[in-house]
Amino acid sequence: MKNYLKETHLLDYNHPKIQQLIAERKWAENDEFEIIKRIYNYVKNEIVFGYNSKDEFKASEILEQGYGQCNTKSTLLMALLRGVGIPTRIHGFLIDKTMQKGALVGLTYLIAPAKVSHTWVEVYYNSNWIALEGVIPDESYYNAVKDKLQKRDGGYYGYAIAVKDIRADNFCFVGKDTYSQSLAITDDVGIFDSPELFFEKYNNTPSPLKQFLFGKILSKRLNKRLQKIRNRKNEL
Rank of each mutant, 00 (worst) to 15 (best):
M99E: 13
P16E: 10
I161W: 05
K101T: 09
K216Y: 04
G155Y: 00
Y42V: 04
I229Q: 15
I136M: 06
P16A: 09
N234K: 12
G92E: 02
L213C: 14
G68A: 03
K54Q: 13
I136L: 06
Y51E: 09
K115N: 15
K164A: 10
E7I: 00
N3V: 09
T186E: 15
L80T: 04
N203Y: 08
N223G: 08
S74H: 04
L104C: 11
A103N: 11
Q181R: 11
G83E: 05
T98C: 08
L236I: 11
L213W: 02
H15I: 07
R82C: 10
T178G: 13
D188C: 04
Y124W: 11
E64P: 11
A168G: 04
I47L: 06
A28T: 04
N71Y: 01
K44Y: 03
L77C: 11
P206V: 04
G83D: 06
I39S: 08
N204W: 01
K37R: 06
L209V: 14
Y141V: 02
G155M: 01
K216C: 06
R232C: 12
N170G: 09
G83K: 02
V105D: 14
L213E: 11
I130Y: 05
S117A: 14
Y40N: 05
L149A: 02
I185A: 09
Y179K: 05
K201E: 06
G92K: 02
Q19F: 00
N45R: 03
I217M: 15
S182F: 03
Y159F: 13
V43F: 04
